[in-house]
Amino acid sequence: MIPIIFNIIVSLIFTTYEKTESDITFSHKAHFGDRDIECQACHKAAQSVSADDINMPGHDECSECHSVSNAPDDCGICHADPANPKGITMAEREITFSHRAHLGDNPTSDDCLSCHQGIDQLVSQLTSTEYPWVECEACHSRPAIVTALVHPPDWGHAHKFAAADDQRQSCAPCHHNESFCSDCHAGDNLVETVHDLNYRFNHGLDAKGKESQCQSCHDFETFCGDCHNQEDVIPLSHFYQVWNPRTNPGTHADFARKDIESCASCHDDQSFTCGQSGCHGDRDGIRGTDPDIHPSDFMDSEKGPWHDDPEFECFRCHTNTNRAGTRFCGYCHGENGE
């Protein structure tokens, strides 16, 4: 019940807000509805490619029919307060809507009315927030339709390129990026909206086969573990006999070489399971007798912090003898400590 109340309270808070005001007393009905003056006579929206374009008529357009030079008497034709005319302050736009892309090259007033329905009957000026219009959602709301008609079918894979190319702002006309990305990516929904339901079972194929580059969008350190921990589910592959590192060490080693990020996403690197389990601990201190986990030239030419720091990472698995020529130190300095 508390969550529902939470929603209602938030809804009530927001619905108390009013719209911005304007001092223009313009009647669309008198100009357009009664006199058949085309929209394009006053508005230059047909050439507008950005929501930031100012498509409202100014004194230049009005002066074609009205006198605007005899202030303040003429000002009263349009301004409610002729002594202090304000006009309309254009609000900052958060979208990149293109009128031209929607209207085409030679729009008619009917084209305008298909979205701004009923504006020809307005007798008083409204603020830009109150104009009657068909919401974008009338065409763009249904995700299945959008996927088919607006986005290419492989959009699940391809959208990261469009998002990265933000100079074209390809997402912004329909989506506020910060919010919309989070709907799917941030994990603040309880059921995934990106993949089909069966993905719960077989997503391992795509992750392992690199079909889905999860890391390109998701933080690998949290992404896998977030669901696996939440539902207390261990990857099914770990139950296979071939996965057992004691009987079949090659399988999980092969996986680790190809996908070490996935290992790190669930296995805590602070309590290093690979070393603490005893499998990868350098117990005998003899080079070459333990599982081969480092690259062949690993740190060979480095004079790293392990020389001075007895708590350094290396000593989670290797034994620090502090004597050149023996065990860990001898790996690089040789038996004679050269």
């Binding site: 927001f14 807000y17 009013e18 719209k19 609000a91 958060e94 979208i95 830009s128 927030t129 919401e135 974008c136 959602e137 763009h140 709301s141 249904r142 995700p143 329909c174 989506h175 506020h176 919010s179 919309f180 709907d183």
Partner: peptide, 14 residues
């Protein structure tokens, strides 16, 4: 407060 509905896209079907 400007368009009287969701500005983030999706609306009903999010």
């Amino acid at each position: 407060s400007r368009s009287r509905t969701s500005g983030s896209g999706g609306g009903l079907y999010r």
